[in-house]
Write a protein that binds this DNA or RNA. Structure first.
Lengths: 216, 216
DNA sequence: AATAAATGAATGTGTGTTCATTCAGATATT
DNA sequence: AATATCTGAATGAACACACATTCATTTATT
């Protein structure tokens, strides 16, 4: 790696330091030291401490979204897509523990100050999931009464909580593959030995109009 | 409410203020003002700022665990238990937005500094879920290959993410009941229109003993 | 009168940010 | 080719200030 690219070095250092201490307990001086750079230099590349955090999210989250989308584009079957999404998500977390911790913990905490911002990138990520669901419904694979807006949050939340566990605890009990398999299996097939009739008592199954496509 | 009970007033004020600004951006002076108490008075009841946060978690989380356990004890069927758990969880969040935000956001961020502690209370909450799962497996209702340790996190995560959405966004698109129904339904029955054979390719389907119902 | 509880102004520390200064390398001048 | 001039990236010591905590004093309770 080049000696230069101060920007990149500062970002990488900040990821490490923020993950170690949390944003508010991290000192600019510590980041500077980690990046082998003078305190003041940081202000040549970033407006302030907060700006570093935002940049981390912007740049790194962007990479992740792109990579996940890329990976999913190779697959057709929505069932498989969900499983691959889970696997990808958990693998990425495992590979980038520090980054994952920041996105999970620090950015959530800061969300009050950058709601609108976080939401955009984050919504984009969640939308990958709801798109898969809609696709599955169109293909007649997934039940029509599944609300994609709820599903995407539930599915993401499940993965997110699973990874938090990894991020915070040093040794992990379950492997990435096992977890991804289990979780996608929960959501696809449920956990019942045999489908439970009572849970569907409310809605009568109404005949679904076939909305082939709606492009004019 | 009594004019006294400074302890309680400070806690309530702190919940409000922490939720509004986040822990690190909250001033002791602001909490004092909100509680109609002098700055110094707070230090008669708490050791320091952090102690207030911990106390909030300890006292309030304790109440929640007790209340959920209480509610679940009335029910037999594990399927129903899961649904009630979801409903309870989401309802509690809705009723105590500020508290929910603190538990979700601030405590997660602080977990680095008090891992051992958070884990105990939190684990207790998660364990409620895995206990339901094990019970369901014993009764032959839930598949044996479901790992309770993964399930509890996935299920909790799903609910947690759903409530984060409510906590952070002012108007909500889905009602508590709808969300609870949908989420527990995902986990019980999956989302497939028809069980997907591929996803089970690993394990040979072993003949399922017909567990008609398990009520004695 | 004695004790306890509450007050809030004062303190001191920790830290994000600034900015005068340095100096390696580029450019101009001889 | 040698020397002088310029440039702006990098530095890090110094600053300013926000804020948790303290404690001498006041007020309430017994």
């Amino acid at each position: 790696m080049k000696v230069a690219d101060k920007h990149g070095r500062i970002i990488q250092a900040a990821i490490k330091v923020f993950a170690r201490n949390g944003f508010f307990n991290s000192r600019i001086a510590e980041i500077a030291k980690e990046a082998n750079v003078a305190d003041g230099t940081i202000y040549l590349y970033f407006n302030n401490k907060y700006d570093i955090l935002i940049t981390i999210f912007e740049e790194e989250m962007g990479k992740i979204i792109a990579s996940v989308k890329q990976e999913l584009s190779k697959i057709d079957n929505p069932c498989e897509k969900l499983e691959i999404f889970a696997l990808q998500h958990l693998s990425l977390v495992e590979k980038n523990k520090d980054l994952a911790e920041i996105i999970q913990v620090e950015l959530r905490q800061s969300s009050k100050f950058m709601k609108e911002y976080r939401n955009r990138k984050f919504a984009e990520y969640l939308q990958i999931i709801s798109t898969i669901v809609k696709e599955g419904q169109e293909k007649g694979l997934f039940r029509k009464d599944v609300m994609p807006g709820i599903f995407k949050r539930a599915f993401f939340g499940a993965l997110d909580e699973m990874s938090r566990f990894w991020v915070l605890s040093p040794r992990k009990k379950y492997g990435v593959k096992t977890a991804a398999k289990q979780i996608s299996h929960f959501f696809l097939n449920g956990i019942l030995e045999v489908p439970c009739p009572e849970t569907q008592k409310k809605k009568k199954k109404r005949p679904v109009k076939k909305t082939k496509r709606s492009k004019k």
